[in-house]
Design a protein around this nucleic acid. Structure first.
Lengths: 220, 220
DNA sequence: TCTTTTTCTGACCGTATGGTCAGGTTGGGT
DNA sequence: ACCCAACCTGACCATACGGTCAGAAAAAGA
């Protein structure tokens, strides 16, 4: 609702940007944000356009003005988190060695789990159901990305900079451990006495994951 | 369909067990198995009783004779995988130290990911959506189990048998990495050239996970 | 000011869903 | 042979869903 109001303010020329294009962007953003939440909480099948509309503060019919179908809206939500992850991987390439590269990658992915838990959940849900909507991404972008990173890891191993481990299984472990804090956040919260992790606890989580993984590959 | 046929054969007295109770068990089992598959593939919201009925080879109305509601059926499916996991944790307690205990626990959980991927997915889905159905399990059984295991880990640390790491974060890592092979099995399969992991690849996965984790806690 | 384009919305529609039920069938107990 | 409880099922129902549409409202352009 707050988001839709802000969009309306922008639209009415009383906001920071008065242009029509800016208003459209703002409304789309409000819808996407609401959709991310609803899809994460209810799954694709359990989510309803009505719920998304309510959360975005718009009539349902208006949703279909911005996004043709439920599936199209869903696809946009999934693409979003995927691109965020891809961007986070830049730290991997710029690193001189595994301690720095993998350490920074863990930090980056943990931070995403903290700030975009719903996006992570939507992605997990999509993959768990056989990736009916983004299978092409898996086969093209993700595969290429994975092979590229595996190559880097193999080079580090060849240079004696880390223990000889299977690069793919190492990557799976990085994805699994970092995304777990988003996807299973509710379980972690319950085991934490029903309270979300504090800042200090998030830092401890990061340190724990990095500690075990980096020692596990012989760079700490 | 095969399962329902077998149930019918049992019911007709031409199977291994002719008793009415056995027939009931067999039909329930067929329904639970079908439900696990459908819930895993479509999520709770996307799953339909009709689909489950078709897969179990029964008319839809018959499902409601065995399970009152969709939610009751779902709950049984979730309870199932949870109990399997609890049982797998026995190896943890019987161990003399972390190398043996945690190593065996990883093996056991990897084996479950391989044999019950659908159950794992249903559980993941349930937790991701805020555990609307099994929240009580999280707060009672799972919490007690976790605290018990954390205590064991702390003792091992105190005895100098492993590196000082936060027991909770270690457990989360174990859950995350092992369940990832079930929950994200489709992604792993895609990155494996579209083919499921072979026996040898599963062994390599187990060895990789164990290697990194055990080195990471200083017991290898 | 008048026209045109974009944005917005209440009311509506066909479909599919979870669940019900009356009545039929079967098989063990006596 | 008979009965009764357990088992099974086609047909049905109320509801809620994704999506459509005619037309109102608002903004941009002239």
């Amino acid at each position: 609702m707050k988001d839709a109001d802000r969009a309306k303010r922008i639209k009415n020329g009383r906001g920071t940007a008065g242009s029509r294009a800016a208003a459209r962007r703002a409304t789309e953003e409000a819808i996407l944000k609401a959709a991310e939440t609803v899809f994460a909480e209810a799954g694709f099948g359990g989510a309803t356009m009505q719920l998304i509309a309510d959360m975005a503060g718009l009539p349902k019919a208006n949703l279909h003005y911005y996004f043709e179908t439920k599936e199209a809206l869903y696809r946009r939500v999934v693409e979003r988190i995927f691109n965020i992850w891809l961007q986070a991987a830049d730290v991997f390439d710029e690193a001189a060695g595994p301690a720095e590269g993998i350490g920074a990658y863990i930090d980056a992915k943990m931070e995403i789990s903290r700030r975009h838990p719903n996006g992570s959940k939507v992605w997990a849900s999509e993959v768990m159901h056989g990736a009916p909507v983004i299978q092409d991404y898996l086969e093209t972008t993700l595969r290429a990305w994975t092979e590229g990173r595996a190559k880097v890891i193999r080079r580090w191993i060849a240079e004696g900079k880390m223990t000889d481990v299977d690069p793919h299984h190492l990557l799976y472990m990085l994805w699994a451990t970092t995304q777990h804090y988003a996807d299973f956040g509710h379980q972690i919260e319950t085991l934490n006495g029903g309270k979300p992790l504090t800042d200090a606890q998030w830092e401890a989580a990061k340190a724990s994951v990095k500690g075990i993984v980096l020692r596990g590959i012989g760079v700490a």
